[in-house]
Design a protein around this nucleic acid. Structure first.
Length: 950
RNA sequence: GCUGGGGUUCCCGAGCGGUCAAAGGGGCUGGACUUAAGAUCCAGUGCUUAGUGCUUCGCAGGUUCGAAUCCUGCCCUCAGCACCA
């Protein structure tokens, strides 16, 4: 219907020519500095990104209209593996990948370009800026930066030098999830670094050593439940399998070959020195720690060589599968004979009660197996369920029994840790990490857990830093409020974080060891600060060589001597001073807006780095979090593909409709789903508004003013007030409800009511249009031009509400007419009359107004009906009966209590008479109840007009 | 499991002690306009009734003169849980 694309382009061009988003220091103007958390360069923007971005732009536009000097810069985060692996796939011409890019309209030449990591980053970051412009964002694109740029890397080097100075950079051993070829990778559901296994969990197991025949020779098992070691009765392994002897330091460990592969990465050069068959081990004994006893090695079919060591220590009291394994053997002499075991001896093995837990007693595994009717160790599903349940109950409600030495009476939760510690200290146990499922790197190689001896960490656990950050958070504007409340907990939970890794990644070399590259989270914490530098580096006003530690110290921390610095880096004092001024003008950052995924990782490090390295006055002022755009298939994300090619969506619905959709479909703290129906709905809404304006311009308007004009003024100003308040709370849903729906409805009512005053209408719609400038800026400019205004909405002031125009009395009067209208309708409907000729309206009897007033006052004093009624019946004794029933009714339903006067009601009706007559095409008469005998007149109450239709 | 968030009338989604049968939108029904369709406008949309009354806001209790809104228990659901921005 309307050609949105045309005027979107038109206005974007005008904004761009006026360079509205390009801002510099204006000392006489207050500043507002806002960013969205920049995103990883790994492909096209999708509709999910645009949700948060358009909020950011709306806030920026709002602040600009309030008179702030607004800086909204952007950048791209290219650190890490993303671009490398994406480019690789293009280079290898993977058909799916090539198809994807072709569908997005890439030419062969461009596909060529994105086949190298740098080309990829370059292409997409340029595309991002184009997308921002296409979406009507007014940002300072001159400052655009990418984390892989050389100048940015100088900045990160500086950051790490400062961290070290502040003793926030430390080294210690670490168990990293790592690809055997590429080095450390992130194992997380986004699968940025992976091709498989994003949901895998990293478990810390306790590795138990059971002494075998030779000195220093051990059968090793792993467990998540070290506290159950008091209940060991035997050891399980696979009779038919072959195990290996692994030399670990000066010990020999017997375990599966698969385990040997894993432990290789966690111990100093282990080597396989021999083999031993399951058949050789079964029937032998080994020495179990803690219970200090020899236990027999028995065969089972549930030992998986891929899990742990492929050998299991058996605790039948608390592990259902162990119990069933034992049960199976004890039931069958044949089976024992087969394995050359002494049946009588096997039968003597008894589970040892060690933990008492709620509901399951002292032998939870056995009790639950009975309850679930598990028949043998082959009932894998049931046993898994049983295991989960016993574990859960045991962990939360379990208490160690008397035979558990010094741990008796201790809660399982606690005993678990203490026992683990004791065993390790006695060299009877060790720590072993494993993944809960198979994980494969993007390169196709296996991901394992690898011990890094001297890993670098940022010390987020630092008590002082944590405390300082918690204090700072209290002063911040963080939305949702819920997050603000959680923040202290998040910050306390936040531990040291590995900050650099080896391998070939994009990013900044770690300044204290060039073989490391700083990892993606750690190099994107202070970046808003860098937008103040990139303005100069992008324009080549400063060279790389000039970005020294001293330079950053001076401009960010005001440290050092200007003259000395200027001479040293050969940069004019003037420019250095200018940058220093920029920093002190623009910093701190006012708002960082990001998706909910940032809550527990990005935002904490963003804050802690600011708090740790910068003076207090440069610490961020606000964090806003928006939830996601989801589809039926889950989160809309780049890696999952599917819907969300923003170019197509813009064409289909228009930018304004999309921006309005994001703002209005739900509040920002809920996931929304992107569907055609909703988008169409918002496009139609814009069509409707355009049409409304066109009609208004065609309308013949008059100079006449009535109460309705005052009413519209009141409504409009009240809404304006609400809009501003809601804007401050990023309650965009409520803001857009008012702007695009409620004000529209007010105007419609006004017009239907007969309002057509030129001055009222034009003064208000000119203001109304300005409010469109936040979420639908293109249509705002277009309408504004249509009205003949020469100024730009984007550069105008946001309309101020006129509080003197707001009148609750006027609004409630009008509400009464609205209610009356609907009452008359229902009366007509119920009368069964086909045609109405006459409507008589009765204004209530005088005494009732007085009664209402008295009642209102009494209700302020007491809620006790027993006290109120006698007082009123006394005063209104002639209407004794009516008073009783009326008062009880009102107390039951307070909304009936409308205090007004007879005169006002009559006036109100008189004014609405013409309107009512026109609406119902019938004669309308207003009559005082005192002047008639009609029973309807007696029913009339203050605020409730009696109605008779004939 | 831990830590948080939710469950509202056909649907989406506001509301978070009285003004709530519950905003706004969508859908549906009826009417106006139109040759017609679409768009737009107007009305209705829990059950009932000359404008009243009755029953609703996950389930079960409780506090209060009064609860969708507060408290307790339960059920169901969603998210985050670390080298992923």
């Amino acid at each position: 219907m309307n050609n949105y694309q045309d005027y979107e382009k038109k206005w974007q061009k005008i904004w761009s020519e006026k360079q509205i988003g390009f801002v510099d220091v204006l000392e006489n103007k207050p500043k507002f500095f806002i960013i969205w958390a920049y995103l990883t360069v790994s492909g096209f923007h999708h509709i999910g990104h645009m949700r948060g971005f358009s909020y950011t732009d709306a806030i920026a536009r709002y602040k600009r209209m309030l008179g702030y000097n607004v800086l909204l810069p952007a950048g791209g985060h290219a650190t890490g593996n993303g671009a490398i692996s994406k480019a690789m796939k293009v280079k290898e011409r993977e058909p799916e990948v090539i198809k994807h890019y072709k569908e997005h309209g890439l030419e062969e030449k461009e596909i060529e370009q994105i086949s190298t990591p740098n080309g990829f980053v370059d292409f997409f970051t340029k595309r991002y800026v184009k997308d921002y412009k296409d979406f009507g964002f007014l940002g300072d694109w001159r400052r655009f930066t990418v984390t892989t740029n050389k100048d940015y890397q100088k900045f990160i080097e500086w950051q790490f030098k400062k961290l070290k100075e502040k003793k926030l950079l430390i080294q210690k051993p670490y168990y990293a999830t790592a690809c055997v070829k590429c080095g450390p990778v992130a194992v997380d559901p986004s699968e940025m670094d992976l091709s498989k296994g994003g949901t895998a969990q990293k478990h810390e197991y306790t590795l138990i050593k059971l002494k075998y025949k030779e000195p220093n020779e051990y059968v090793v098992v792993v467990t998540l439940r070290p506290e159950t070691m008091f209940g060991q009765t035997n050891v399980w392994l696979d009779y038919d399998a072959t195990y290996v002897k692994i030399k670990v330091e000066d010990e020999i460990w017997i375990a599966s070959k698969e385990f040997a592969e894993k432990i290789k990465f966690q111990k100093e050069k282990p080597s396989i020195v021999g083999e031993i068959k399951g058949t050789d081990l079964v029937g032998d004994y080994c020495f179990a720690p803690l219970i200090e006893k020899q236990v027999i090695i028995l065969p089972s079919n549930f030992c998986d060589k891929k899990i742990g060591t492929g050998i299991v220590t058996s605790v039948p009291s608390d592990a259902p599968i162990d119990w069933m394994g034992l049960y199976d053997l004890q039931q069958s002499k044949e089976l024992c004979d087969k394995y050359e075991l002494d049946f009588e001896k096997i039968k003597q093995i008894e589970p040892i009660p060690i933990i008492k837990s709620k509901d399951f007693g002292e032998l939870p595994a056995i009790n639950l197996c009975k309850k679930l009717n598990v028949k043998s160790q082959k009932d894998t599903e049931l046993l898994e369920k049983a295991k989960q349940e016993v574990y859960k109950k045991g962990f939360h409600t379990g208490v160690m029994l008397d035979n558990c030495d010094k741990y008796k009476g201790m809660k399982v939760e606690q005993a678990k840790e203490d026992i683990k510690k004791e065993l390790i200290s006695k060299n009877q146990a060790d720590i072993f990490y494993d993944l809960s499922e198979e994980v494969v790197c993007r390169c196709g190689e296996k991901v394992v857990i690898k011990k890094v001896d001297d890993q670098w960490f940022i010390k987020y656990s630092d008590k002082q830093l944590t405390e300082k950050t918690i204090q700072h958070v209290k002063e911040m504007m963080i939305l949702p409020e819920q997050l603000k409340q959680n923040f202290p907990k998040i910050l306390e939970w936040f531990e040291d974080r590995a900050c650099a890794r080896q391998g070939s990644w994009l990013g900044t070399k770690f300044p204290f060891d060039e073989s490391y590259t700083i990892e993606p989270i750690s190099d994107s914490t202070l970046y808003p600060l860098f937008y103040l530098i990139s303005l100069y580096t992008n324009q080549k006003i400063i060279s790389l060589e000039q970005l020294t530690e001293e330079f950053f110290d001076y401009v960010f921390l005001n440290k050092g001597d200007l003259k000395e610095l200027s001479e040293k880096i050969k940069l004019s004092e003037e420019i250095i001073k200018k940058i220093r001024t920029d920093v002190s003008y623009w910093y701190p950052l006012d708002v960082n807006l990001g998706g909910k995924e940032h809550q527990t990782v990005h935002f904490p490090v963003f804050l802690m780095n600011h708090v740790g390295l910068l003076p207090k006055e440069y610490c961020p002022q606000g964090i806003f979090v928006n939830w996601w755009v989801v589809s039926k298939f889950g989160k809309v994300s780049k890696s999952k593909g599917g819907i969300g090619n923003i170019k197509d969506e813009i064409q289909k619905y228009s930018v304004d409709a999309m921006r309005l959709f994001y703002a209005n479909v739900a509040n920002i703290f809920t996931d929304i789903s992107f569907n055609e129906e909703d988008l169409n709905k918002y496009k139609q809404r814009l069509d409707k508004i355009l049409l409304f304006f066109k009609n208004i311009l065609d309308e013949k308007l008059s100079e006449n003013k009535t109460n309705t004009d005052a009413w519209l003024q009141s409504k409009f100003n009240k809404r304006l007030k609400n809009i501003k308040k809601a804007m401050e709370n990023v309650d965009f849903k409520s803001v857009t409800d008012d702007i695009y729906f409620n004000i529209y409805n007010d105007f419609t009512w006004y017009l239907n009511r007969g309002g057509n005053n030129k001055q009222t209408i034009f003064s208000l719609i000119n203001k109304w249009i300005l409010t469109f400038g936040l979420f639908t800026p293109h249509i705002a400019e277009e309408l504004n031009e249509m009205l003949g205004n020469k100024y730009l909405v984007s550069l105008s002031s946001f309309p101020k509400e006129d509080a003197t125009k707001i009148s609750d009395a006027l609004e409630s009067q009008e509400k009464q007419i609205e209610d009356l209208l609907s009452d008359i309708r229902s009366v007509i409907k119920m009368s069964g009359l086909n045609k109405i000729n006459k409507i008589t309206l009765f204004v209530s009897e005088n005494w009732k107004y007085d009664l209402y007033k008295d009642l209102e006052q009494l209700l302020n004093e007491t809620q006790n009906v027993g006290q109120i009624i006698p007082k009123l019946t006394e005063k209104y004794y002639t209407h004794k009966k009516e008073v009783g029933s009326l008062v009880t009714r009102i107390i039951k339903n307070r909304s009936l209590l409308i205090t007004t006067t007879k005169q006002k009601e009559q006036e109100n009706l008189r004014e609405a008479k013409v309107f009512l007559e026109k609406t119902f095409s019938a004669e309308v008469k207003v009559v005082f109840a005192e002047d008639t005998d009609n029973s309807k007149a007696k029913q009339a109450l203050p605020g409730k007009i009696g109605i008779l239709v004939e």
